[in-house]
Design a protein around this nucleic acid. Structure first.
Length: 427
RNA sequence: GCCGACCUGGCGCAAUUGGUAGCGCAUCGCACUUGUAAUGCGAGGGUUAGGGGUUCGAGUCCCCUGGUCGGCUCCA
C-alpha cells in the first residue's frame, strides 16, 4: 500500500508531460489541436539525436530509406483495406475538386483525400513500382513516417498517445523461406538498438491466431509455419516469452518487445508483425529462381513504435536525466568569476569542435544560482573553473547528483566527456 | 467517445457569502563579480480558455465551444 503510494509519486515526478514543460522539450498548443505536439529546441535536439542514431543503424543494417506523402486519395486505403476496418481511426477526408453547376448540383464529384494513418500502403506501391526478382529480396524499406490517427479524446496522453506521430517504420518484403532468418535479424537489431537507448530489461510477447475465428486471412499452413517460426526466433533470443493467444492481427501473428523502465513499469515497445494480407491486396509478387511468380510475405516493424512515444518513455525512464549523448545541453561551464570565463570558453571551443553541446554561463547571476539553474535543467556535466583550476590548467566537475571532482586536468576532462558521450553511458 | 473534475500573467499558485485581480519563480533594468542548489533594489506583464446568459455588479452562478486531468474502452 505504502509502496504503491511511493510508486505513484515517483511516476508523477517522472511524468513526461510534466518534464516536457519543465525542461522545455515540447508542448501541445491549444491552437493546433488536441493530441498534436510541437517540439521545442531542447526536445528537438534530443529527437534529432535519436533519429540520427536510428538512421545510422538502419543504414548499417541493410535498410533503404524511402519517403511518402502525408495525404493520399481514398483509393489507396481502399486497396489496403484500411477504409474498411480502420475508418473510425482516421481523420475524416478532405473533399477536393468538387465542381457544381449553376444550380448547385454536383457536376464533378469530389475526390477524397485522407491523412495517412499508416505507411505500409505507400511502401507496397514502391515495391510494385517495378518487377521484382528473388534477387531483390529481402527488400527492407525504412521511413520516419508521420501518420495521423483520430484517437478518441479520452485516450490521448501527452506524447505517448497522440493524434499525429512519427513511426520509425520499416517494411520488409521477404520470400517465405527466408522469414526465419529475417525475423532473427530483425529481433536482434531491435533489441540491440533498444539497449543503446538505455532499455535493457525485456520480455517478449507472442500474439497468435484465435482458433476457429474466421476473420483471420491467409491459409492455415502459413499461419502455423509463421507462428512456429516466430516462436522459434523468440525462444532463441533467450528472453522470456509470454503467449498472447488470440492477440494476433487478422493479417498475421506478431512478436512484441515489452521493456521495463527504471521503476519497473512495462511498456510495449517494438512490434514485429507478419502480414499475409497486404501482399495479397496489392498483388505483390516476385520472380523466383525457377521463373514462377511468388508472393512475398511482409514484415512490419517499428522499434520505437513512434518517436514521440519512445521519447516519452525515455523521458520517464530517465526521469529527465537524459544520458550525455541525448542530453540537449551536455555541458555547462560555470566560471567562479567573470575573469575565468575566457578560460572556460577555451575549453568549450575544444569540446564544441568535437561536437559537444556546451554552453558557458556568462550571465551575471551568482555562481550558486547558476549551479542551481543547471542542476534543475538536469545538465549532465557542469565544468567549474576559478583561480585554482586555471592556474593548474584544470577544471572541476560537478555532476547531477551533486558530487564533484576538482582539479581534473583539462585534457582529461575533455577526454572523459567525449568518451561518455561516445559510449552512450549514463552518468 | 462515455462518466467526473478542472482551465486566473511564460510557469506554480492567491483572491471572504458574486463587488471592478494578488504572490512566488521567470522576464527586463541597475548595482554586486562572487568557489559548488536561489544577491539586492526597481520595472513591465493578466480582465481571469473563447462565446453567450443571469445580475446594479461575475474570476466567482448558468449554458455552449475548446483544452486539460482522472477513470472506462482502445492503441504506436
Amino acid at each position: 500500500m505504502k509502496a504503491h503510494q511511493l510508486q505513484l509519486e515517483e511516476a508523477a515526478k517522472r511524468d513526461h508531460r510534466r518534464l516536457g514543460a519543465e525542461l522545455d522539450l515540447f508542448s501541445f498548443p491549444e491552437e493546433i489541436g488536441s493530441g498534436l505536439a510541437v517540439f521545442h529546441p531542447r526536445g528537438g535536439i534530443i529527437r534529432k539525436v535519436m533519429e540520427d542514431y536510428s538512421r545510422k543503424r538502419h543504414e548499417e543494417s541493410g535498410y533503404e530509406f524511402v519517403y511518402s506523402p502525408h495525404v493520399t486519395k481514398a483509393n489507396l486505403f481502399e486497396t489496403s483495406g484500411h477504409l474498411e476496418w480502420y475508418a473510425e481511426g482516421m481523420f475524416p477526408p478532405l473533399k477536393l475538386d468538387e465542381e457544381l453547376d449553376d444550380d448547385g448540383n454536383v457536376k464533378r464529384q469530389a475526390q477524397d483525400y485522407y491523412l495517412k494513418p499508416m505507411n505500409c500502403p505507400f511502401h507496397c506501391l514502391i515495391y510494385k513500382s517495378q518487377a521484382r526478382s528473388y534477387r531483390d529480396l529481402p527488400l527492407r524499406m525504412f521511413e520516419f513516417g508521420t501518420v495521423y490517427r483520430y484517437e478518441k479524446s479520452g485516450v490521448l496522453h501527452g506524447i505517448t498517445r497522440a493524434r499525429g506521430f512519427t513511426q520509425d517504420d520499416a517494411h520488409l518484403y521477404v520470400a517465405r523461406e527466408s522469414i526465419e532468418v529475417e525475423l532473427t535479424n530483425v529481433l536482434n537489431f531491435v533489441l540491440e538498438l533498444l539497449r543503446d537507448y538505455g532499455l535493457t530489461d525485456f520480455y517478449l510477447e507472442l500474439s497468435t491466431k484465435e482458433e476457429g475465428n474466421p476473420k483471420f486471412v491467409g491459409d492455415d499452413d502459413i499461419w502455423v509455419e509463421a507462428t512456429q517460426t516466430l516462436e522459434r526466433v523468440a525462444t532463441n533470443s533467450g528472453l522470456q516469452l509470454v503467449p498472447d493467444p488470440g492477440g494476433a492481427a487478422f493479417y498475421g501473428p506478431k512478436i512484441s518487445v515489452q521493456a521495463k523502465d527504471a521503476i519497473g513499469r512495462t511498456w510495449q515497445m517494438s512490434t514485429i508483425q507478419l502480414d499475409f494480407n497486404l501482399p495479397e491486396r496489392f498483388d505483390l509478387e516476385y520472380t523466383a529462381p525457377d521463373g514462377t511468380k511468388q508472393r512475398p510475405v511482409m514484415i512490419h516493424r517499428a522499434l520505437f513504435g513512434s518517436i514521440e512515444r519512445f521519447f516519452g518513455v525515455l523521458t520517464e525512464h530517465y526521469a529527465g536525466h537524459f544520458p550525455p549523448w541525448l542530453a540537449p545541453v551536455q555541458v555547462v561551464g560555470v566560471p567562479v568569476a567573470d575573469e575565468f570565463s575566457s578560460y572556460l570558453h577555451g575549453i568549450a571551443s575544444e569540446l564544441r569542435a568535437a561536437g559537444v553541446r556546451i554552453q558557458i554561463d556568462d550571465s551575471d547571476e551568482r555562481m550558486q544560482k547558476k549551479i542551481r539553474n543547471h542542476t534543475m535543467a538536469k545538465v549532465p556535466y557542469m565544468l567549474i573553473a576559478g583561480a585554482e583550476d586555471q592556474s593548474q590548467g584544470a577544471v572541476s566537475f560537478r555532476f547531477r547528483d551533486g558530487t564533484q571532482i576538482n582539479g581534473i586536468p583539462r585534457s582529461e576532462a575533455v577526454a572523459r566527456i567525449l568518451k561518455d558521450i561516445a559510449e552512450k553511458v549514463q552518468v
